[in-house]
Amino acid sequence: MRKPSLPFVHEHAAHCESGVMARLLFHYGLPLSEAMVFGLSGAMMFAYIPFVKLGGMPIIAYRRMPRAVIKGIQKNLGVKMKMETFPRPDLGTAALDRLLAQGGIVGLQSSVFWLPYFPEDMRFHFNAHNLIVYGKEGDEYLISDPVFENPVRSSIKALEKARFVKGMMAPKGLLYYPQTLPETIDFAVVIPEVVRKTARAMLKTPVPIAGIRGIQSLAKAIGRLQNKDRRYARLFLGHIVRMQEEIGTGGAGFRFIYASFLQEAGVLLENRNLSDCSQMMTAVGDQWREFALLIAQSIRKKKNPAIDFPAIQKKLENVAAAEAEVYRTLLHSEL
């Protein structure tokens, strides 16, 4: 493990995984913004998987699977991460303590529900949260959770529980930190490559559960809610918005952070097309926000007893069309 040269500084970020990766890389000597980390990992996506349910609701994700940011950054930038899981909680805690004693900072995967510093109303059983431990004081860990504005703390016991919870996407005590960093990164090559790959993945998915087709399937599913149980229909709509806005996406389900990435990439490569597409993506993000607002107004009980499902479906179809246009433009422009 490389010796960090600077004292650790917490930084507020939109998303846990990209936030943790950006901070880890920065601390060990590769300064990249969170937006660059997110964009360059190729984790931008959309998925609607009606047949896989979590807590009674189908999987709706505005990005790739958990760990996709960590994996994507390794693959695309030539970063090598040390990643370790443990068969027993005590081994995981011992390994963490050892790394901290050596002066390192460590990325961890954990459950959200068992982290004591999470607000009560945000504690759900999601096991793929990410955070950084940067120190230990007495029987408490010093934690930099990027989605929180300020550093937080957790008892040893609580963190151990959160790291070793069993179930879907079980963290198994996963800890990670950079092992080797690239000497140089040729952004003029990497950026166009990853941007095109993301655009192709969004446009040309073979199955209707991912990419633009995934958004269109979700729109159809909303239309079908008309004939479903009323309570389920409301919960389903609320679930979409939670996945888009509540869980740390930087707003509009990562569309704003991606626009930020495109903007930064445009400046770095002095490429007008990237900057233009950034603006297009911002407009798409604004439409996603309108979609969320439409849903919130519909499910607010007293004011609107009847929900206009076709209108919500139509709105989402328009969002899908606008977003598809951004990717088509990216594929057809010189980057």
Binding site: D121, M122, R234, G238, R242, E245, A292, I295, I299
Partner: peptide, 9 residues
């Protein structure tokens, strides 16, 4: 909007 859906859940 976020409060609405979080409290709903």
């Amino acid at each position: 909007v976020e409060a609405e859906v979080t409290l709903q859940a």
